[in-house]
Computed example of a mutant assay.
Amino acid sequence: MILQPGHAVPDDAAYLPATTDHVLWGRLPCATDSPVLAIDPGDQVVIDTISHEGILEDQGRDPLAWFTAAGAHDVLEDAIALAASDHPRTWGVDGPHVTTGPIRVPGARVGDLLAIRVLETTPRVPYGVISNRHGRGALPGEYPLDGADVFSVFATVDDQGRGRLPLGPGTEATVGFDLHPFLGIMGVAVAGDRRPHSVPPGTHGGNIDINVLTAGSTLYLPVQVDDALAYVGDPHFAQGDGEVALTAMEASLRVRLGFEVIAREDAVEAFGELVGPMAETSQFLVPTGMDADLDVAVQNCVRAAIALLQARFGMDPRHAYAYLSAATDFDISQVVDQVKGVHARIRKADFA
């Protein structure tokens, strides 16, 4: 089933469709942006998101033609409308990502944490796209091959709910992989009147591409402007740590999210002084580190993990450092977004 705008929307939560007046394309919200929805802390929102793959200029900026040629039978109406619109965006200057929002959360103040709880992630289409373009990715001097500017692979969802992509052009043989839908972009508005580029992540969150942020997880973000002005986008069906080719299986999602505000004093007691995003799943506490230099990103993540263990469990920093070395995985979130990301997976059961 394809989830067109307004189709099969539950009636127990606010609904935010990804119409052209509800999205930004290539930039992220700042303090002067007007909210497209206001909710109270504790409320849930059902949000439509649009993947940028299939709508970009190097793919013809015609998703109906592009996806139909790739083998899709249905194409999202909101993706078609956005690509055909004069939505403000400069190709080659702004980023590729489409974000839905911003959402005003009254009561969120600078210094608080905004908790975004991922309750459901529902694919809107049975297909997605994985691209390597413009000399980007982990091997920018080697791929795409043959002097191509972009190479996009059309991937499908099979009857077992797994991803499928061909082994090569002209062959019907495929490789299958598990899907773990998540939002690559979750963030809060930055201070000032300048919208940040959608590609590099930062203390505001944004394009963090952390693949553990599936249904049941929570992302905590330091609020940077009053009322938070939250937004989401860059939907994925699947992504390996690193996202080495530049994009993973990018495909549009409908998500149900819950929003809560954690007062600064409570946030410091629970997490320490967070300077950037932190995630939590049923199994793990997930501090993050970011920097253009991957070595520094790792160091920042280790420091964040030590601070978290001190605040949450009263752990001596030397013992926390030792525990992290013995028992915690440090994963590369992505290496392709200018600012590289690392996240740690600290098992909560170890401290039961």
Rank of each mutant, 00 (worst) to 15 (best):
V23F: 00
T247K: 04
G184S: 07
H319D: 15
V268Q: 15
Q160P: 08
P140Y: 14
Q239T: 05
A311R: 14
A115F: 10
D291S: 05
R318T: 14
I2Q: 13
V223L: 14
V105L: 01
H22M: 03
G111K: 03
A65L: 12
I130N: 14
D291I: 02
W91R: 11
V255F: 07
A292C: 13
V45N: 01
K348F: 10
I306V: 05
A307D: 14
L183K: 04
V125K: 00
V157M: 15
T281I: 11
L76M: 06
G147M: 09
E172C: 04
A267P: 07
A228G: 00
A279I: 09
F151M: 13
T328R: 02
A228D: 07
H180F: 15
F313I: 03
Q44S: 12
M1W: 12
L219H: 08
G161D: 05
L28S: 04
P317Q: 06
G111I: 01
G192W: 01
E120H: 12
G107D: 03
E172K: 15
R312Q: 08
G60P: 05
Q338V: 10
L294R: 09
L119K: 09
G206H: 02
L167D: 00
D337R: 15
G128D: 09
Q310M: 15
L219I: 08
V129F: 10
G6D: 04
A263H: 15
H97R: 06
R195G: 07
H22Q: 02
V46L: 01
R61Q: 00
V190E: 10
E260C: 06
A70E: 06
D193N: 10
S252E: 14
Q59G: 06
G26C: 05
S34Q: 15
V212H: 04
T156F: 07
A191F: 10
P222S: 04
G168T: 11
H52N: 11
D21E: 14
E57F: 12
P166I: 01
